[in-house]
Every structure is written in structure tokens, then in C-alpha cells.
Amino acid sequence: MRAEIVQILRAPLYWLVLLAGLGARASMAVLDFRHRPEQAWLLAGEFWSRAGSVTMCLLILVVLIRRFSVDYETGAVPVVASTPLGRRSLYFFRLAAGCAMTVLGVALLAAGNIGITVILGRGTPIGWVRDFTLRTVPTAVGAVGYFLVSAFVCDILANQPAAMAVCGIPFAVSYFINTGMIEPFDVFWFLRYGFFTELARGRWIASRPGFWIVWYVLLIAGVFVLSICRRKERKLL
């Protein structure tokens, strides 16, 4: 697993995506503190609502799930799969490393947002850091769930661009759905809450949370089982 973590840490794209996200946040923060200082702290606390969650989505789809298709895309499967650890063990190493690096990404973005906001705001209101940190918890949970599903889809399809489309489109579509205009169990309600977006945006789901817990468990488990079945067919377990 150490080798997998090192591979991700060595990938320039991992750091570029994080820096791009924080760069966008810094630009917005400068403008917020300059032109609407009374709202700046509120907007800083809403970091995960847009810039933060979009950055995490890109980090997962562009960087972290690549380890699940790279062997197929480079033709390295026979070489890797003929080693003692190159099948089941490597699969689980990559999942664990991806989860760890997802959490690290969330932590770095959170720390970056706090740092940018403290520097530009010259200090923080009482309780702001605590409140923001509490919002980061559902983001971490949602990001790890989203990584797992995306990684399984990437492994099933053996193709990163295809996985990006399959997993990225529902995530993106949810941003355009207004929560005030949806009813429980209609299609748009499903699209809004069903693909980890709400969690990634720093919010626990208020609408039927019990249903969503079951849904997310079934979604992750279902895609995992499909991934395992596909690996068995390919003799990669």
C-alpha cells in the first residue's frame, strides 16, 4: 500500500488540482473581503458548497481513480497480474490508498481554506473554525463514498474517461437542482441527493436521512459486487 500512496503523492496532477482549487478559493476570498466584507465569513464557511466539492470531484475523477484503469490502458495487466500481490491484494491496496488520499485531499483543502480566510480576514469570528471543521466531516464521508463508487466503476469499465463520464455527470447535474423545488422520491430528488453531492458540499442530508443511508450502502455494495464479478471473469482475483 505504501507504494500506491507514494505513486499518488508523486503525481503532479494531485497537487495541481488541490492548488487550483485553493487558487480559485483565494481569488474569490480576495473579492469577497474587498467588496462584501459583511458576507465574507459566511461565504468562507460555504467553501465546500462549490469550490471545495468541485475540487474534490476533480481530484477523485482525474487523479485518484486512474490507478484502477492504468493497467488496462497501458497493457500492463499480464505483467502485474502474474505477481503474487498483483491481483486481489493490489486491488485492495489501491482502494485503501485512494480512500486515504481522498481524506488527505479534504484535510488539505480545509486547512488551505482556513489559512486563506484567516490571513485575508486577519483573524476569525468566534466558533468559525469549529463550525467549518464540523462541515468538513460530511465532506470527508461523501468524498470517500464517491471515490469508492467511482473507483469500482472505473475498474468495471477498465477505462478512466468512461468512468469520469458515468460518475461525473450525475455529480454535476445535482448542482443545478434547487432543493426548494423537489419532492421526496421524484427523479430530481434522487439526482440531487443520490450521488454524494450533498455530503461533499458539507451537509448531512436532511430529507429522509435513513433512506439515504440505506441507499448509499446498497450503492457502494452493489457496485463493489459488480467489480468483484468482473475481476473474477478477467481472472484478476
Binding site: 492504468v70 497501458t74 497493457g75 499480464p78 505483467v79 502474474s82 505477481t83 503474487p84 498483483g86 491484494s89
Partner: peptide
């Protein structure tokens, strides 16, 4: 399984690598 692969060395016809 893994015990056999521990004793195996394989060069496939189309050798894939990480560029």
C-alpha cells in the same frame, strides 16, 4: 494462486509498462 505466482516469471508478448 499467489503461491504459484511467487514462483513464476512472465514476459507477455505485448509487454505493457507504466510510461
Amino acid at each position: 494462486g499467489a503461491e504459484f505466482r511467487r514462483r513464476l516469471g512472465y514476459l507477455p508478448q505485448d509487454f505493457g509498462y507504466y510510461p
